[in-house]
Simulated assay, not measured.
Amino acid sequence: MRANKIFAFTCCLLIAGCAGSEKKEVAKAAAVMPPPQVTRAWLDEYEPRVREAVKGSDFEFERRENLLVVTAPVQKAFNPDRPHMLLPASLGPISRVAKLLEADEDVAVVVLGHADSSGDAARNRDLSQQRARAVTSIFRLSGLKQNRLQLMGLGSDMPRAANDSAAGRALNRRVEILLTSRDTMLGLIAKYSKPAGLAPNAGPKVAAADQGKLGKTE
């Protein structure tokens, strides 16, 4: 009888411990995600300012779930002869967006480079990362550090159009600037690290935004 009581007591302790751990995990997750009203307030504040920053340029802007997204089409933003180099006309809108964020420590930036599916997949992924790094370099000049700035080269893993036409491939060649809460930046990185349909051993290239200089591409 005494053994049964001890066993029952031990089980209770284990159950209580598991419940406590679950509560801690839930609390931790809740701490990472800001309350919905805070997220909406941030989006409402920054949306008109970011729209104004890219107004009159070839950049696109959209409010996507809990993000503000600026998209730079490669065809209009990068030098066709040196495909990892930004055109002078692209520097203005990127610099204006960066200027908005430089003093706000609660805002983070994730830059995603995308390519079409033509050519070698590994080279496309490298090129998409180099283009993303070219954009992050503008944010670095405004003082954003690694804890607020990350980049990823996704290659052709996340197209927004079919690659069977020149128009579709042009849409897929882009760099996206995602503006998010600093508290949710790592979760955003994790989300895009495993895009749907990604082939094994062909993951996106993720890099800290203040790594070395751009490499030369052919």
Rank of each mutant, 00 (worst) to 15 (best):
Ala3Trp: 10
Val26Ile: 12
Lys213Phe: 11
Gly119Lys: 07
Gln37His: 12
Ala190Val: 09
Gly168Asp: 09
Val110Lys: 00
Val97Asp: 03
Lys205Arg: 05
Ser118Ile: 12
Ala72Met: 11
Met152Cys: 01
Met1Gly: 14
Ala3Ile: 14
Ala98Leu: 07
Leu14Cys: 12
Ser118Thr: 14
Val135His: 04
Leu171Lys: 10
Ser156Lys: 15
Lys216Thr: 13
Thr184Phe: 01
Ala89Val: 13
Ala115Ile: 11
Ala121Glu: 14
Trp42Gly: 13
Ala16Val: 10
Met33Phe: 11
Gly187Tyr: 00
Met152Pro: 03
Gly153Tyr: 03
Arg2Pro: 00
Val32Ala: 08
Glu176Lys: 09
Leu112His: 01
Gly168Glu: 12
Leu127Ile: 15
Pro200Asp: 11
Gly119Glu: 13
Ser57Asn: 06
Arg160Ile: 15
Val135Gln: 05
Phe78Val: 06
Gln75Met: 06
Glu105Trp: 00
Ser118Glu: 15
Val50His: 00
Phe7Trp: 08
Phe9Met: 10
Asp44Gly: 04
Lys213Ser: 15
Thr180Tyr: 02
Arg40Leu: 14
Asn163Trp: 08
Leu214Gly: 05
Ala190Met: 07
Ala108Trp: 01
Ala16Trp: 05
Pro88Ser: 09
Val50Gln: 05
Asn124Phe: 01
Asp81Ser: 12
Met1Tyr: 13
Asn147Glu: 15
Lys5Trp: 04
Ile138Ser: 02
Pro73Trp: 03
Leu87Glu: 11
Ser21Ile: 13
Asp120Arg: 08
Arg64Lys: 14
Ala208Cys: 02
Val97Trp: 14
Asn147Asp: 15
Trp42His: 03
Arg2Tyr: 04
Glu60Gly: 14
Glu22Arg: 08
Leu186Ile: 10
Pro83Arg: 15
Ser137Cys: 04
Asn79Lys: 11
Leu100Ala: 05
Glu105Ala: 13
Pro83Cys: 01
Ala134His: 03
Ser193Tyr: 00
Ala16Met: 13
Arg64Asn: 10
Ala199Trp: 03
Val38Leu: 13
Lys55Glu: 06
Asp58Phe: 07
Thr180Ala: 14
Glu62Arg: 09
Trp42Ala: 09
Asn4Ile: 12
Phe9Asn: 06
Cys11Gln: 06
Leu67Cys: 01
Arg148Ser: 06
Pro48Met: 04
Arg160His: 02
Leu43Arg: 04
Asp120Lys: 09
Lys28Tyr: 14
Phe59Asp: 01
Glu22Trp: 08
Gly155Arg: 02
Leu87Asp: 04
Gln129Asp: 12
Leu188Ile: 12
Val206Leu: 15
Ala98Ile: 05
Gly155Trp: 07
Leu154Ser: 03
Lys28Val: 05
Leu186Thr: 13
Lys28Asp: 10
